[in-house]
Design a protein around this nucleic acid. Sequence first.
DNA 1: GTTATATATAGATAAATATCTATGGGGTAG
DNA 2: CTACCCCATAGATATTTATCTATATATAAC
Lengths: 301, 301
Amino acid sequence: MSVVKTRSLSETARQLHLTQPTVSLQIKRLQEEVGEPLISMQQQKLQITEAGLELFRTCKQVVGHFEDYQDFLAELRGGERGRCKIAMVNTAQYILPKLLGPYSNLHPHVELPLEIGNREEVLARFERGEDDIYVFSHPPSLEQAQAARFLHNPLEFIVPNNHPLLSLKQVNLTDLMQYRFLLRENGSATRMLFESELQSRGLVLSDGVQMASNEAIRVAVSSGMGISLLSHHVLPMGDHSFTKLQVLDTDIASQWYFVMRTDRHISHAARSFLKFAQTNLEQYLDIKWVRNELHKLNIEP
Amino acid sequence: MSVVKTRSLSETARQLHLTQPTVSLQIKRLQEEVGEPLISMQQQKLQITEAGLELFRTCKQVVGHFEDYQDFLAELRGGERGRCKIAMVNTAQYILPKLLGPYSNLHPHVELPLEIGNREEVLARFERGEDDIYVFSHPPSLEQAQAARFLHNPLEFIVPNNHPLLSLKQVNLTDLMQYRFLLRENGSATRMLFESELQSRGLVLSDGVQMASNEAIRVAVSSGMGISLLSHHVLPMGDHSFTKLQVLDTDIASQWYFVMRTDRHISHAARSFLKFAQTNLEQYLDIKWVRNELHKLNIEP
DNA sequence: GTTATATATAGATAAATATCTATGGGGTAG
DNA sequence: CTACCCCATAGATATTTATCTATATATAAC
């Protein structure tokens, strides 16, 4: 490269802190490799041949490509580019987009593929290490898991409008047992939490119906099919097709956690997203429920 | 590269006839060099990371550029591309384009810079080795020169229309001596030839005027300024503003030669042009004058 | 549980590579 | 004509590189 600019082997050697024979030999070998003369002497001046010039152009382009790659790496490292795969349990899909949206606007080149499943499915993904970040209500207590709470998740009882319970002055958990309960499938965090509450108080449901999604349950309650317990964050603000029920002696709540594997490499994009979350949780989520413990995650490089 | 396709280090090793540790180590070192993980294991399957994929793309492009360069070299070697610098004496500029035109159409990517000068100038260029091919009437007899005749160059006497000589039944060289002769500068091949002819016959010109170009001489003769001796090839066919004079006892002619240096690398384009000339001289030049001795040049690689 | 397969690591080695110093030849400029 | 600058070549050497064998580890298949 330098030879093309200086048109002199000796000068090149000086610039590169090499000796002249070294440069001479390098050029000679390069010519043998190419099979064509790359330079020629003309009136004691070194000329670059056509083949030499074209090789020079080729090399410039190649160097350009590697520089582009370095730029790509820089963006990757800065968290401006890359991929951050997130797997979350169903309930979280109502709340996480409030964070993902602003983040995605700030880092448009970061891919954010989302996986949504029930607890069991997300757990399986975690065990296979398919994603960068997992969102659980009840993080697995495996040693490869590091978890940090970020949001309080209060559960609320909902009943159809005009339900008999609404006419009572005050309602206790026991009062609810006689009604048909609509619940998510076994293993769902909400259901686990509810059932353990019942068990610890020695209560038993008289009638339970299993439904596949939070929306299905909400709509079913609205149409009088039964009563249920749902995450506060799942209930649309302006929806009056059902009624929230205050149950005096009961306060069931869980937390949401960001979970990561300790034994897997943390992608720059994931690191970048978590940092963003750590500093912006309060801004994008209802500050009433925010529980920012993201510092517990080991996200520094 | 193969790793990206096979998604397996062992399989790659088999395909490349290497052992698995070799591939493993190579990838490891590549990752250390890049400073980012390029592959990752996921459920026992090898995944390529973003950084890895981007590097793969970069490498494909780089390989592409070198393949382009190989194509360039192939064209260069086939004489379809490159440069063939030709320096010729003034007189030759009337005849050589008849060869250069068809050749250039056949090989549009070959650059054909032409240098035109008087004998002295072209000789200087030859000595400095500035061009690939030289065209002389009287090739230098240096040992670094190899020359091959390709065209007979008869010289013709021209006189103004209605010149007294035209009324003579027959004209001898001696008859011309009393008239003013228009001649090219000293060192011109035509002049050299003419003067040596005069000298060998003990003749002396009474009056000579030196002019810089063949055209100037032709026009000057037409306008009655004197008489001259010019190459047959310089005289336009349909021009009747002057008259050719048959001189009985005199037949002056020279030859045109392609000349090359033996001590310089012959460019593929030059080789290609000379081959073209060798096989097509008769087609593009008046066959009456062609003297094809190009086989004397050592133009095989 | 045993076997097979995939990747990772350590240690050894032969080949290739990048250098250097020393020297020779050709040409230019005092 | 001599000193100087340029490039070319030869010989020596130290480092780097590519590669192997042997072995360990983890997972999947039987």
